[in-house]
C-alpha cells in the first residue's frame, strides 16, 4: 500500500485514493471530426507502460481533487505528483 503525497493534502495512505489511468489523454475538442479509428484511440487504446508512467489519481476519500502522478509501474515507486493543468515534467 503506497503512501501518496496529495498535492493538496500531503502524505496519505493509498486507501484514500482512486487511480484514474493514463494521464494527458486530452478529450478531443471536436469529436465529430474524428474517424472511428481516431475516436477508438482516444476511448480505449492505452500505453500501459512498464516503467515510468504518467497517470491520474483522485484523492477520493479526502479533498476529492484529481492530480497527476509519475510512477514507475515496474516497482511502484512514485517519482512525482503535480496538479492537474500543470505541464508534465519532460523526463
Amino acid at each position: 500500500m503506497f503512501v501518496i503525497n496529495c498535492p493538496y493534502c500531503g502524505e496519505r495512505d493509498q486507501q484514500e485514493f482512486k487511480a484514474g489511468g493514463e494521464a494527458h489523454i486530452e478529450r478531443p475538442k471536436q469529436p465529430t471530426e474524428l474517424s472511428d479509428d481516431e475516436w477508438a484511440e482516444y476511448l480505449f487504446m492505452r500505453k500501459n507502460i512498464k516503467g515510468v508512467q504518467f497517470e491520474r489519481w483522485n484523492h477520493a476519500h479526502g479533498c476529492r481533487k484529481w492530480f497527476n502522478m509519475v510512477r514507475d509501474t515496474s516497482n511502484d515507486e512514485i517519482k512525482l505528483v503535480y496538479k492537474m493543468g500543470e505541464k508534465p515534467p519532460l523526463e
Binding site: 481533487k65 484529481w66 492537474m84
Partner: peptide
C-alpha cells in the same frame, strides 16, 4: 458525482 468531478477538474477546468 465522481465522473462529473473528473470531467470538471480535468477536461473542463
Amino acid at each position: 458525482l465522481g465522473k462529473l468531478e473528473d470531467y470538471l477538474q480535468t477536461e473542463w477546468p
